[in-house]
Measured scan of single mutants.
Amino acid sequence: DWREIAKLAEEALKKQQPVTVNGQTFNDPNEIKKLLETAQKAI
């Protein structure tokens, strides 16, 4: 669910920690931002 992904990505950016989505881990803040943008577009 994109809403859940957006929430996870936002928290990861705030806490500056990696986030795992669908078994894929994102460590890079730039990648997390991209993930968040993608999720927000999909909602």
Results as ranks from 00 to 15, higher is better:
residue 39 A to Q: 02
residue 14 K to P: 01
residue 23 G to N: 05
residue 2 W to G: 02
residue 1 D to H: 11
residue 5 I to H: 01
residue 6 A to F: 12
residue 5 I to Q: 02
residue 33 K to G: 06
residue 13 L to T: 02
residue 12 A to I: 01
residue 29 P to W: 10
residue 28 D to P: 05
residue 2 W to F: 06
residue 38 T to L: 15
residue 11 E to C: 07
residue 10 E to T: 11
residue 42 A to N: 15
residue 22 N to C: 13
residue 42 A to F: 15
residue 28 D to M: 05
residue 35 L to I: 09
residue 12 A to D: 01
residue 17 Q to K: 10
residue 31 E to W: 09
residue 41 K to W: 06
residue 27 N to I: 12
residue 10 E to H: 04
residue 10 E to W: 09
residue 31 E to P: 00
residue 7 K to Q: 11
residue 20 T to H: 12
residue 13 L to D: 01
residue 40 Q to I: 15
residue 41 K to Q: 12
residue 40 Q to T: 09
residue 30 N to K: 13
residue 16 Q to D: 12
residue 6 A to S: 04
residue 29 P to Q: 08
residue 8 L to R: 08
residue 14 K to W: 09
residue 33 K to E: 12
residue 2 W to Y: 05
residue 22 N to F: 14
residue 1 D to V: 09
residue 35 L to S: 00
residue 10 E to V: 10
residue 39 A to F: 03
residue 42 A to H: 15
residue 17 Q to V: 11
residue 19 V to I: 15
residue 17 Q to C: 07
residue 14 K to L: 13
residue 35 L to N: 00
residue 26 F to M: 07
residue 3 R to G: 14
residue 22 N to A: 07
residue 24 Q to G: 05
residue 26 F to Y: 13
residue 14 K to C: 08
residue 2 W to H: 03
residue 33 K to V: 11
residue 26 F to R: 02
residue 19 V to L: 15
residue 9 A to D: 02
residue 1 D to Q: 11
residue 9 A to R: 01
residue 15 K to A: 07
residue 12 A to R: 00
residue 19 V to Y: 05
residue 43 I to R: 00
residue 7 K to V: 11
residue 11 E to S: 08
residue 30 N to V: 13
residue 38 T to P: 01
residue 8 L to V: 09
residue 32 I to H: 00
residue 38 T to N: 09
residue 5 I to M: 04
residue 33 K to H: 09
residue 28 D to R: 04
residue 20 T to V: 10
residue 34 K to N: 12
residue 33 K to A: 14
residue 29 P to I: 14
residue 33 K to Q: 14
residue 26 F to P: 00
residue 33 K to I: 13
residue 11 E to V: 06
residue 35 L to K: 00
residue 8 L to M: 15
residue 36 L to E: 02
residue 20 T to F: 08
residue 13 L to E: 02
residue 22 N to Q: 07
residue 22 N to W: 10
residue 16 Q to K: 13
residue 29 P to V: 13
residue 3 R to H: 15
residue 18 P to C: 05
residue 26 F to I: 12
residue 18 P to G: 13
residue 29 P to N: 06
residue 37 E to D: 10
residue 30 N to Q: 13
residue 12 A to T: 00
residue 40 Q to M: 14
residue 9 A to G: 03
residue 5 I to Y: 03
residue 1 D to L: 11
residue 36 L to D: 01
residue 31 E to G: 05
residue 36 L to V: 04
residue 30 N to W: 14
